[in-house]
């Protein structure tokens, strides 16, 4: 099998995760989508993308949760379910590990900084860009 063909299959499994990350699904399904065993899929995935399929899945879910916490009015429990987690405890632990603060603190902190409801504060993006596009000193 050519390198390009293997990468295409791998990419197909990655796309499967990206397309279904909000649902409850097994990473075995993603591996099947690449016509690889879960072990092989995981190893090749890490080699090519620098993260395991599970780390990729968690990253997508946490990023989506961060967005929903700022731009939506759902409760943390609702967001937990909407990003594909069944257990609020697991979700909160993962969020804390990846973001550095619990979901409620993240929401409270960013909402407090923003001058408009459901919009990100300027402090959420690199200051050089905030200054460049909005010319507002950031603290």
């Amino acid at each position: 099998m050519t390198e390009n063909s293997r990468f295409k299959r791998l990419s197909s499994g990655r796309d499967y995760i990206a397309d279904n990350y909000l649902e409850s699904f097994s990473l075995t399904d993603a591996a099947n989508n690449s016509f690889m065993s879960p072990f092989h899929f995981s190893r090749i995935f890490k080699e090519n993308y620098g993260e395991t399929p599970n780390e990729f899945l968690i990253r997508l879910r946490i990023e989506k949760a961060k967005q929903m916490l700022i731009t939506e009015n759902y409760s943390v429990s609702e967001i937990c379910e909407r990003v594909g987690y069944m257990s609020l405890g697991s979700f909160s632990s993962l969020f804390l590990k990846h973001v550095g603060m619990p979901p409620t603190s993240y929401r409270r902190t960013l909402w407090k900084l923003s001058s408009e409801p459901f919009r990100y504060p300027l402090q959420a993006i690199p200051a050089c860009y905030a200054y460049h596009f909005l010319r507002k000193p950031v603290n």
């Binding site: 990206a18 967005q67 001058s115 459901f118 919009r119 990100y120 993006i125 909005l134």
Partner: peptide
């Protein structure tokens, strides 16, 4: 892939 798609205060889209 999309990294961030954020509506910022002031109407700017990051």
């Amino acid at each position: 892939e999309v990294g961030d798609d954020m509506k910022m205060e002031g109407g700017f889209r990051w």
